[in-house]
């Protein structure tokens, strides 16, 4: 039975199948919301209200010719999309979605899984950089360098922000942190600054407006992805969607109280809470212009990082006071 559970966990929920299906759904929601903010309709044709459009896009891209530039470093060029996709899929497994009983501890829920998931979510950025490097194209190279610059801007605030709920709950395990806040729902309000910082940093991690600097099409064509096409591009796009789901799931687990109540209610909580995060992300990209890379870095260090630090100080003092 336990073996079956683990297989279900790996392949169905929250593993490969679920992440694929749900990430396309989230992409559809994101596109629909973005369209609504712009008085458009968004995808309409494939499926009811275009709900299958992301899958259609994925299938279409998979069927397209896959071109590897002559001058590219071919091994690296081919390996990078797989590497990056693997890392976010693995990160997805760490989400505390199934409430396993204390008797059965899931292999993917352990003390310190918070650090691992943050690390795995950071890996794609390095992959993008390598992709840009391996492509041997000027636009890709600029894109790749921008990816790294951006990474240095948002990653520290991101880590500082996810530190606060962990410190408050006194645990490095997401399931325990979520359980802590489920027991004391009002404590969620303490972390409101960190929540804001984490959402903004997630937007930057996902390279969406206003932080889509690395692949700003009007400046550097496709950035690190300029030379990618067909299957590999499809993988990159899928991985961006999954990254959004996992990132939103992580934020929901840490800041919105996780997904209590066993399989079915937990699943519903998961959908509702990740969609709340996705809504904020979609709204953010419809009301902002793209920043310049220097503006992003200074914004990050002037506002995001100090705000996250302030939050940490608040949490430490409150924790001392409450005890």
């Amino acid at each position: 039975m336990d073996i079956l559970k683990i297989f279900l966990y790996l392949l169905v929920y929250p593993g490969l199948l679920f992440l694929f299906v749900y990430s396309t759904f989230v992409e559809w929601i994101d596109r629909k919301l973005y369209a609504k903010f712009q008085n458009r309709m968004g995808p309409m044709y494939t499926g009811s209200h275009g709900i299958l459009q992301p899958i259609a896009d994925f299938v279409k891209l998979m069927a397209k010719e896959d071109i590897v530039p002559d001058k590219a470093d071919k091994k690296l060029f081919n390996a990078v999309p797989i590497l990056a996709l693997t890392s976010v899929l693995t990160a997805g497994l760490l989400l505390p979605v199934w409430h396993f009983s204390d008797a059965f501890q899931s292999a993917t829920s352990f003390q310190g899984d918070l650090i691992v998931i943050a690390y795995l979510l950071a890996l794609p950025s390095f992959a993008y950089f390598l992709a840009g490097w391996a492509s041997a194209s000027m636009y890709s190279a600029i894109g790749g360098v921008r990816v790294l610059t951006l990474l240095f801007a948002y990653e520290v605030p991101m880590f500082l922000a996810i530190l606060s709920p962990a410190v408050m709950a006194g645990s490095w395990r997401m399931a325990e942190i979520a359980a802590y806040y489920q027991a004391n729902p009002w404590y969620l309000l303490i972390n409101v600054f960190a929540f804001a910082v984490a959402v903004v940093a997630l937007q930057a991690k996902l390279e969406r407006v206003p932080f889509d600097i690395p692949h700003a099409e009007t400046e550097v064509v496709g950035g690190a992805f300029t030379e990618y096409s067909g299957r590999k591009l499809a993988m990159f796009r899928l991985l961006a969607d999954i990254q959004m789901v996992v990132g939103a799931g992580m934020i929901a687990a840490l800041f919105l109280g996780g997904f209590p109540g066993g399989l079915i209610p937990g699943f519903i909580w998961f959908v509702v809470k990740t969609l709340i995060v996705v809504f904020i992300l979609a709204a953010m990209r419809s009301v902002t212009a793209r920043l310049r890379i220097d503006q992003m870095v200074s914004f990050s260090w002037k506002w995001l990082a100090p705000l996250a630090l302030l939050q940490l100080v608040i949490v430490i003092f409150l924790k001392g006071y409450l005890q």
């Binding site: 903010f37 206003p210 009301v287 902002t288 212009a289």
Partner: peptide, 8 residues
Amino acid sequence: IGFDTVLM
């Protein structure tokens, strides 16, 4: 400048 809402 990436502000597609203005465009739309």
